[in-house]
């Protein structure tokens, strides 16, 4: 009974994957038919030595790193906060989690126009109101703007996972530590943080896999620009394969993207595997 799923997934994985690898060794451009000769590692060479590849790699790292930093620290903060006794906790939690359900194109456009637009956006108006020169977010700090937008979308995810993990924390252990005179900081460092360590790792790994593929947010805000200032690896591959019609080059990029994602995936799969026997 598992065979339909296995066959489908196997086909889904092997056919495109082997085609990607195959194309990556061809000179294959959709607008200049050259008969697609085999060119060995040429595409990889050109892809890897292209200055925009270096820019895209740095941007990808900055994006993933920045978003992880904001969402993990913010997520721990929110999880601790929501775990405290308060009124209306359910409603507050819903408000915090809501951004996760907003589709990427909506979040990106709303932030770009309603908040980050230098003239009519709320940030711009606040800056002007205080007598500052408003920042042109997408022109001057495109990468940071995208980091902020995507962080807003993923902070709820980190919060939700860490909050779930917090609830399995043994309250009596905390109380015992408190009785023994442990202050808030030492309780946090020696009890809460070790308890959350596993959940934090999971958040980091899963988010990294998704964040490596950020695409729509870039497409509707900066188009990767100005220049390549906000182009990540995913977007660069999209540009070379679907905009420049360079199938060979795009495929070589695709193979590199797969290798990068797999490095993260190996660690993630190990953690899932450990938990599977339970």
């Amino acid at each position: 009974m598992i065979s339909p799923s296995v066959i489908l997934l196997l086909g889904w994985m092997i056919i495109p994957l082997s085609l990607t690898i195959y194309f990556s060794f061809l000179r294959y451009n959709l607008i200049t038919p050259t008969g697609n000769p085999f060119v060995g590692w040429e595409n990889y060479y050109w892809f890897l030595t292209d200055p925009s590849f270096k820019a895209a790699m740095i941007n990808t790292l900055v994006m993933v790193g920045g978003i992880l930093l904001i969402t993990v620290i913010g997520g721990i903060g929110f999880a601790l906060l929501l775990d405290r006794p308060m009124w209306g906790q359910g409603i507050i939690r819903i408000m915090v989690i809501a951004p996760f359900f907003v589709m990427p194109t909506v979040s990106a456009l709303v932030w770009k126009n309603m908040f980050m637009n230098p003239v009519n956006g709320i940030f711009g108006r606040i800056a002007t109101g205080l007598g500052f020169e408003p920042i042109d977010f997408m022109g001057q700090i495109p990468l940071l703007s995208i980091v902020l937008i995507v962080s807003w979308m993923w902070l709820p995810f980190a919060t939700l996972i860490l909050f779930t993990a917090m609830q399995s924390l043994d309250q009596e252990q905390l109380e015992a530590a408190e009785m023994d005179g442990a202050g808030w900081t030492s309780r946090f460092i020696f009890i809460v943080l070790p308890h959350l360590a596993r959940a934090i790792t999971v958040v980091i790994l899963i988010q990294t896999i998704f964040l490596l593929s950020i695409f729509a947010e870039i497409l509707v805000t900066t188009n990767g620009g100005p220049g390549t200032a906000s182009t990540n690896l995913t977007y660069l591959i999209y540009v070379s394969s679907l905009l420049q019609f360079d199938v060979g080059m795009g495929s070589a990029g695709g193979v590199i993207a797969i290798i990068l994602a797999n490095i993260v995936a190996i660690f993630l799969m190990r953690m899932i595997g450990k938990n599977l026997d339970a």
Partner: peptide, 13 residues
């Protein structure tokens, strides 16, 4: 593990 494959890796084919 098939879910960990980045979509862009198979975009072209």
């Amino acid at each position: 593990s098939t879910k960990m494959l980045p979509p862009v890796g198979v975009l072209v084919p």
